[in-house]
Nucleic acid binder design. Structure first.
Ligand SMILES: [Mn+2]
Ligand SMILES: [Mn+2]
Ligand SMILES: [Zn+2]
Ligand SMILES: [Zn+2]
Lengths: 143, 143
DNA sequence: ATCATTAATAGTAACTGTTACTAATATAGC
DNA sequence: GCTATATTAGTAACAGTTACTATTAATGAT
């Protein structure tokens, strides 16, 4: 894994991120890793997520909202965010390979990538629409 | 304009945002408005942008990076962000109306909207690629 | 026009997510 | 085992934004 040393902290952070399919924030992952390494520091989680993303082992997501999220799946894929509970899920949707080329032709930028994120209501929140309980707002749903 | 009072601060903020095509951050707009209303407070700019966005007069963008940007154009359109200088421009690209429906069918979310943002290199930065001067990094280019 | 009501303001403090710093510790190579 | 140095825990600093508060000003009624 490049020139990164093999520390227990780094190993557990990666293990737990791979296990989770929830695209956690640094703090969410910190709380989970803490159960296995109680004395780990939040800074260590941030630093390792950054390093792992730099070396392309994981992916840093730039979803709506203020918090960065992390994803152990590095392949191209899109995400859905529930506007009710803030949950971020993978979406099994074909990757739009031709978009960048079309967009380059449409304007005067040299397009190198695109970010597509859907907003919607997850099955859980949909079934609780009338009840309104058990559906904690995770983050201010901007726009 | 709803139940919003007509103050000089609010009027100038909106005027300057409409004039600009640069999708400024709150602070960038603050610096511009300050030339006309020197004693205006940054909080006033934030509060008014928020209120104007709530009442759909303007649009709050959730582009990559940490800073929110604002847009007086409320119609559906996509944006390009220059990875070199951070500039955000409109892209004259047809709006993908069928995407939400397709994405709803692809997963188990009820999709209500999508956000598509392109990354690329603007004409200015492209012509300065070798020189590297006059091309100020506006924000840390994450991912 | 004067007044009362109350939204909006300037100025500042507080907050949130993240990054930077530092002295102590642990890893990897010899 | 020893050395060089990457990594760590703990904490301070930082950036962007929001919340608070006393004062000011827009509105609508008299
Ligand atoms: Mn994913
Ligand atoms: Mn725009
Ligand atoms: Zn939900
Ligand atoms: Zn540029």
């Amino acid at each position: 894994m490049g020139n990164l040393r093999d520390t227990s902290q780094r190993r557990v952070i990666l293990e737990e991120l791979v296990r989770l399919k929830t695209h956690p924030t640094a703090n969410e992952l910190y709380e989970i890793v803490r159960k296995r390494i109680p004395k780990i520091s939040l800074g260590t989680v941030y630093r390792n997520l950054e390093l792992l993303a730099e070396s392309k082992v994981i992916q840093k997501l730039d979803t709506a909202g203020t918090k960065k999220r992390f994803d152990a799946m590095t392949g191209d894929h899109y995400h859905v965010r529930c506007v009710k509970c803030g949950k971020v899920d993978d979406l099994d949707f074909p990757f739009l390979n031709s978009l960048n080329k079309s967009a380059t032709l449409a304007g005067n930028y040299e397009i190198i990538s695109h970010r597509l994120e859907f907003e919607g209501i997850c099955p859980e929140c949909r079934s609780q629409r009338l009840v309104g309980k058990n559906c904690v707002e995770r983050e201010s749903n901007s726009g």
